[in-house]
Design a protein around this nucleic acid. Structure first.
Lengths: 196, 196
DNA sequence: CTCCGGTTATAACGAGTGTTATAGACGGTT
DNA sequence: AACCGTCTATAACACTCGTTATAACCGGAG
């Protein structure tokens, strides 16, 4: 009684993730969001009664899930394959938007809580980063990396890719991401059989 | 006739950089900015006639110069020392703000140009990233790194540190930056005498 | 003193913000 | 047919935004 009809709800969330990845959280208004998702303004508050905060949270979780799905699928073929899928995903987003879109999770993570209470959207960004790191670390361990080095390498991968995406947007070039890609691939290969 | 009196102008720019690093560009209003810098609103438009765009640009350039100054000074003692200074700088900012402030350059780089023209503030972010990378690459080369590997490593350093700062804010932990620090130090050390 | 340029104070403009309220439309069940 | 819960349309509220205009200050030069 609550699931059968809701195609527009997901459209709104997906549109929010896309819009936030372009203009940032504060730069994304609910009116524009509704217009862009071809949904009426009223529906936004019908589906997301807690307003923008809830919308931002779900947008982050949406992006998180999409990335995690790709990672889970491609990491089976090894960490290098997973890395390539991770990179290709962001590469496609940046390139298809002509350097106007980036990572919505990073965008939300970069705007502070005005109050002392940690807003749920920020919590969602932390969970997203954690999930990606954990997936990568697990795959690294399963393919022969030293268990005590896997988490650190996974963190480096996520951090450098996120940073590189932003740098690509600034420079309007794919060079940062491509450079980072080369380094990370070599690093992973080196970690899979070093001390053994 | 234009330089003797302008202590408040720099206060405004510095305050803008700080505020942008916390709330993002769109989250920073000129009114709050003036209040936080203890300068009247009118002065903001007196010193920065082109408005917020100019203010954002100069804030980015201000942060750029501050970071470049530290890098130039500490890189003389070698790339590892420079890396440590780079990391310590951001560590101090994140920690002193209780995870509320990050990198203002990244914050600006993450909000899109609504029009087709590339805004000057975005150009400034690209220049900042470029400068930091170039300083690091130069130091790497001068201390024995292979000339064709130095730029890539420098890019990886900047990207991963920027990404890690954002992740620290999200998780409210220093772990990402510390993990990245360890990896980067090892990488630099390995690049200084590997193939020779 | 007057004058004057660099600075500031006050007010207002129009547009946009998140959000709420209220009433209407739609579609399937009884 | 009447009913009902889900969704939507419209309007409004109380702001805040960036920006502009205008008038006043205020300290040194003439």
């Amino acid at each position: 009684m609550a699931k059968p009809s809701a195609p527009s709800r997901e459209r709104i969330v997906a549109g929010a993730a896309d819009m936030i990845s372009r203009r940032g959280l504060n730069g994304t208004s609910i009116r524009d969001l509704a217009k862009h998702a071809e949904a009426p303004l009223g529906s936004t508050y019908h589906y997301f009664p807690e307003g923008k905060q809830q919308l931002a949270t779900e947008a982050v979780q949406y992006a998180d899930a999409a990335v995690a799905r790709v990672l889970r699928k491609e990491l089976d073929a090894g960490p290098v394959a997973g890395l390539h899928a991770f990179l290709a995903l962001w590469r496609g987003i940046v390139l298809a938007s002509d350097f106007r879109a980036g990572c919505p999770v990073l965008a939300v993570a970069v705007e502070e809580p005005p109050a002392d209470e940690t807003p749920p959207a920020l919590v969602a960004t932390a969970e997203a980063f954690d999930r990606w790191e954990q997936l990568l670390a697990e795959a690294l361990r399963e393919h022969g990396a030293a268990p005590d080095q896997a988490p650190g390498l996974a963190t480096l991968i996520v951090a450098s890719v996120e940073g590189a995406i932003a740098m690509c947007r600034a420079k309007r070039t794919m060079e940062p991401l491509d450079q980072v890609a080369r380094q990370l691939e070599a690093l992973i290969l080196g970690a899979l059989d070093g001390p053994a």
